[in-house]
Simulated assay, not measured.
Amino acid sequence: MADDGGDGIKVRFEVLDGRLRGVRGDSWIERLHTGSRWTEGPVYFPAGRYLLFSDIPNDRLLRWDETTGVVGVFQQNAGFPNGHTRDCQGRLISCEHGNRRVTRTEHDGSVTVLADNWQGHRLNSPNDVVERCSDGSIWFTDPTYGIESDYEGHQAVSEIGARQVYRIDPVSGEVRAVATDFLQPNGLAFTADETQLYVSDSEAKHIRLFDVAADGTLTGGDVIATCTQGTFDGLRVDDSGRLWVAAGDGLHCLHPDGSLLGKLHLPETAANLTFGGGQGNTLFITATRSLYSIRVNFAGARYPRR
């Protein structure tokens, strides 16, 4: 478990399966920021050596500068932002609860709306997003958390009447529902070869694994893991194919088949994570009120080195 330490918070990887042995990291985790209401959506930009992350209820996007350690407001009145990703051209892709849309911030600072409706009905509240770099398609989840109250969005009735996973075509811009049988789809991540997709269902407290066809069609969708503490939220794949998932007691590390290999315990409920740093081996974790980081001996899958 975690307890207060000198320059940070002492932590350990709890090994539950021998296949996790050899995974190591610093003996402490740094709290880079605290004082937010609910942090989410960390995304690291190697070229600028900074990390952006959301403080959803405070309707702002925050920026941590790696060179100075300073955290400041990057954008206020940001549409109650949640999840983000950096696309393969280095642009920011964002899910906005309040505006009920997915956007891309161009290199010149202008904003392009990628999706705000499905079949003429407004989206619920896009939650998390990832790009499939092999074809440039954008994939996102659309639960109803942002329209259930005014806490992290604007209360409204779902126009779609469902909570789905979507794919945005890179050429036509068509928004297609690719998975329609979720209770509350949340985090999502491709395997390194982009032939499979993991999606967490926070309401059902489990993770499903889909096979991805060349045209983006999903098949399978079997449940491979069920959360043992809290619920599953954001997730990422590392360079060994393991799955790191935010949960109630920190990060859970899963084998690709869903077996629980171990945990990185945190003092707050984890919401999401990303890999960053010059070698891709720094884990950044958004957890309740705070942003944490820890250097580890593994990296994110497909991570671009400086």
Rank of each mutant, 00 (worst) to 15 (best):
H97N: 08
L251P: 00
A2W: 10
A287E: 03
V237N: 09
R167F: 05
C88N: 10
A162S: 12
Q184T: 13
R104W: 01
S172P: 04
P81F: 02
P46R: 14
S202P: 00
G216C: 15
S137V: 06
Y292Q: 13
F45P: 08
N58L: 10
C253I: 15
G234E: 01
H154F: 13
N281Y: 12
V171R: 14
Q196D: 08
L188P: 02
E66D: 15
V178Q: 08
R163M: 14
Q279F: 06
P42S: 11
G41P: 06
I168Q: 10
S290E: 03
P57R: 14
D249E: 04
G248I: 08
T288P: 00
Q279D: 09
G8R: 02
V111Y: 05
A177R: 08
P267K: 01
E194Q: 14
S54K: 10
H154Y: 11
T226G: 05
T34S: 14
G79I: 05
L188R: 04
I56D: 01
R305W: 02
L188Q: 03
V70R: 11
V130P: 01
Q89A: 14
A271R: 05
E131D: 07
D17V: 10
D215R: 11
F182C: 15
G262D: 13
T180F: 11
S36W: 01
E131A: 10
A204E: 02
E14F: 01
T226C: 06
R302N: 11
S137G: 10
G248C: 03
A246H: 03
F298E: 03
I9C: 06
L264W: 03
D193K: 03
T67H: 00
G262L: 13
D108G: 04
H255G: 04
D239K: 04
R86I: 10
E148W: 00
I207P: 03
R208F: 04
T144V: 14
H265G: 11
G72S: 15
G41C: 03
L16V: 06
L283Y: 04
I56M: 12
I168A: 07
I93G: 01
N99Q: 15
A301M: 01
I147E: 06
L209H: 04
A204T: 07
I147M: 14
V43L: 06
E174H: 13
S125H: 07
T219H: 11
T219N: 12
V237M: 04
I207R: 08
T191W: 01
V73T: 15
P304N: 09
E131Y: 02
L254E: 03
D7E: 14
A162F: 00
P143F: 08
G35M: 09
E96T: 09
V175N: 02
A47K: 15
R104F: 01
G72K: 02
I29L: 08
S158M: 02
S290L: 06
G109R: 08
V199N: 05
Q76M: 08
V175W: 02
V157D: 12
P42M: 02
H107P: 00
Y151E: 13
G248D: 01
A225C: 03
Q196G: 07
